[in-house]
Nucleic acid binder design. Structure first.
Lengths: 110, 110
DNA sequence: AAAGTCTATCGTAATATTGCAATATAGTAA
DNA sequence: TTACTATATTGCAATATTACGATAGACTTT
């Protein structure tokens, strides 16, 4: 095989997994962090910032865009990429929920 | 290629990426959720709970364990797996930090 | 000890990911 | 129009992931 059996899991589980997977690469974590750091967010900046070739970065940006973690709009010649609040908020809520649940059952086992 | 160039990124970026990657599969999200839901956490339960074969689940558990998201201790015949608070808290803090940063620069661009 | 239960590992097939050179596309400027 | 700049796509090689049958290892019970 090699393909995940997504049909057996809930929509929420798949949604979390898809977004987590997109962040499962340091370059894509770095892209998100960079987009949050700078005020403007042109792709060219990212190419200069990261130690990867332009096609590789373009590919990473595409993946982040595909799962909705960033959005891009054409800005003249360049393209303006920004983080998408909604998607990242979903992840934030998931992990906050997880840590909250953990505290409730603290030292319950193991 | 096929291997990530982890050496070019910060330790923190790599740490987040490794953990996010581990959660980048719905079965592993389901495993974490299940471990939080039940009080006891024996692997056998998970095999019955998820629509995957036992070797596949064992493999997923191994990956979660490798990145520190869960920990397991031998409990007689079975093995008791539990979520690891520290690792999940790192992720929770990262995403809370991200969403906090997002709100500060709201509507700054795009 | 023998049989049963639970989990891990091996081996393998199918598929996905990563990275980049080369090239294409689209807009800007001369 | 021609050249320039910015980003995307294609094509390919190397590697990683996913899944599971078969089997092994470890502990329990009889």
């Amino acid at each position: 095989m090699g393909a995940s059996k997504t049909e057996h899991f809930t929509d929420k589980q798949n949604a979390i997994a898809v977004m987590a997977k997109a962040l499962g690469h340091p370059a894509r974590v770095a892209i998100i962090e960079y987009l949050l750091k700078v005020d403007t967010c042109i792709c060219g900046d990212i190419v200069n910032e990261l130690p990867l070739a332009q096609p590789t970065i373009s590919q990473h940006l595409k993946e982040l865009k595909n799962v909705g973690l960033i959005k891009g709009s054409i800005e003249g010649n360049a393209i303006c990429y920004c983080v998408d609040e909604k998607a990242l908020t979903v992840l934030q809520k998931f992990f906050t929920h997880v840590t909250t649940k953990m505290e409730k059952k603290k030292n319950n086992c193991c």
